[in-house]
């Protein structure tokens, strides 16, 4: 596996990791991982690559969480408060809310995502029952785009793929994720997920820079 493939895998896995975080509450197994060696290594890896500040904030919270009575429940409540209530209490993770005139759900960004998914031969898992412009879905999709680099050989092909990814990041994500992340910073009674959001934004910016070169 060449370095481009390796890199693609790494980048894709990070996007998928983010997707998981925004998709639903963490279960016991996943939470364990964060507190264990694997989790620490992974986070450290991210920190070492230019995200030390954001990762540091996250690590701090994780430490505090470990001392809590029912960490999984606390995180679940945090997740709910951050993303699942209404736009008064939460930061809804849908592009439509930030991009459409009325701030409604299921608007053009959702339709656009459906088209994009379909063009790659993908669709949203039916059981999920969420609009296609859910942040987690978009990140999952992005991961898949990145993964296409794993089997690429030629420079030209690689260039094209990177171009596609950059285009997606700039047009479909950066058009609203900053506003979304800013919203998470205003939320009350939250502690974990706003920091994840900040980390995501930082990572996206990093990746954007990388892709632009």
């Amino acid at each position: 596996m060449n370095s481009f493939s390796e890199l693609s895998e790494t980048r894709a896995s990070i996007y998928w990791w983010f997707s998981t975080l925004f998709a639903s509450e963490l279960n016991d197994e996943q939470l364990q991982a964060y507190c264990g060696e694997e989790g620490r290594d992974f986070l450290q890896g991210l920190a070492d690559n230019g995200l030390s500040e954001e990762v540091g904030a996250l690590q701090q919270v994780l430490q505090q969480l470990a001392a809590q009575d029912q960490p999984r429940l606390e995180l679940a409540a945090d997740f709910t408060q951050c993303f699942l209530v209404d736009q008064k209490s939460s930061a809804l993770p849908y592009a439509s809310v930030y991009l459409s005139d009325d701030g409604l759900l299921y608007q053009q960004p959702h339709l656009d995502m459906l088209d994009l998914l379909q063009s790659e031969g993908l669709a949203v898992n039916e059981g999920m029952n969420e609009p296609a412009d859910h942040l987690a879905i978009m990140l999952d999709y992005l991961g898949n785009l990145v993964m296409q680099g794993v089997n690429s050989s030629s420079d030209a092909e690689q260039g094209m793929l990177l171009e596609k990814q950059l285009s997606f990041i700039e047009q479909q994500l950066m058009s609203w994720v900053p506003a979304f992340v800013e919203r998470t910073q205003q939320l009350k009674q939250t502690f974990f997920y706003p920091k994840v959001a900040m980390l995501l934004l930082a990572y996206l910016r990093l990746d954007q820079t990388f892709l632009s070169d």
Partner: peptide, 14 residues
């Protein structure tokens, strides 16, 4: 490290 921290895919082939 990341394996257990990444959940199942939200997308399917279609």
């Amino acid at each position: 490290s990341a394996a257990s921290m990444v959940g199942p895919s939200l997308l399917v082939r279609s």
